[in-house]
Structures are given as structure tokens and as C-alpha cells.
């Protein structure tokens, strides 16, 4: 139970990441999802924008590092936002057994996925 206490002691950190992720999700994700999930697949704008060749050339260009940092920000911080919110909602729903392990699952999951994002963006795609 020591680990869970430590996780709960970091509440200000989780709350800050929740806020940052919520900001990014509110300002950036609507247009990003609309383009990548709807407009490009529907062919409303050029489907070549997401082609393998173009993606690789963008990521290996001089400003590729900026694109990678941008992609990291819109993946990692929204995950921490969701982790915090889902954890608090599970508490509100009063599912006892899940409450106690939820901090570990949610924040742990966001950390693991963020590390994978860093590995993919900055090692595998470099």
C-alpha cells in the first residue's frame, strides 16, 4: 500500500497534468481530430497528407523535431488529463474495489504510454 500512498501524495502533479492535458485537448484536438479522423479519410482534403512518404519526409525535415514535440504533447498530456478524470469519476461511481487500484492503473497507464510515445518518436523514427 506504500506505493498507492506515494501516488496519492503526488496529487498536485496529477492535477497540473490534468489541467495542461485539458487545455491541449480543448484547443488543439477538435481541429486535429477533424482533419486526421474525418476530413482526410473522407477525401475532403488531400489524402496524400498522411501518406507514408510525406509523413517520413516531414519527420526527417529540419523542423521534424518541432512536429515530434507537438505530437508528444497531444498524446501524452491528454492521456494524463483522461487518467485523472477517469480516476475521479470511478470514485464518484463508488466502485469500491476499483477505487483503490485506479490511481495505479490510470496514472501508470499514462506513464507507460508516454514512455512508448517517446521511444517511438525519438528513437524508432529518428
Amino acid at each position: 500500500m506504500g506505493l498507492l500512498k506515494k501516488i496519492n501524495a503526488l496529487e498536485p502533479l496529477w492535477w497540473s497534468l490534468f489541467g495542461l492535458g485539458g487545455m491541449i485537448a480543448a484547443f488543439i484536438l477538435p481541429v486535429h481530430l477533424f482533419l486526421h479522423g474525418i476530413a482526410i479519410p473522407m477525401g475532403w482534403v488531400s489524402p496524400d497528407l498522411l501518406s507514408y512518404e510525406r509523413m517520413m519526409s516531414v519527420l526527417s525535415s529540419p523542423y521534424g523535431i518541432i512536429v515530434k514535440l507537438f505530437l508528444f504533447s497531444i498524446i501524452s498530456f491528454p492521456l494524463f488529463h483522461a487518467a485523472h478524470r477517469i480516476r475521479l469519476t470511478i470514485e464518484d461511481l463508488r466502485i469500491g474495489w476499483l477505487n483503490t487500484i485506479m490511481p495505479l492503473i490510470s496514472y501508470g497507464g499514462a506513464i507507460v504510454l508516454s514512455v512508448i510515445t517517446i521511444v517511438v518518436l525519438f528513437y524508432k523514427l529518428s
Partner: peptide
Amino acid sequence: RELSSVFVAIYAIFLLIRLCALSQGA
């Protein structure tokens, strides 16, 4: 509103899946 965060997480995971695929070749 709380449920919206689930979709935020799913979208982030979708983006990660796309990047993983990108790193594995054309």
C-alpha cells in the same frame, strides 16, 4: 463531460498506434 475524457484517451492511443505503424515501415 467526464466520459469525454475516455474519447480523449482513445484518440491519443489512436495517434500512438499510427506512429508505431509508421516506425514499422510503409
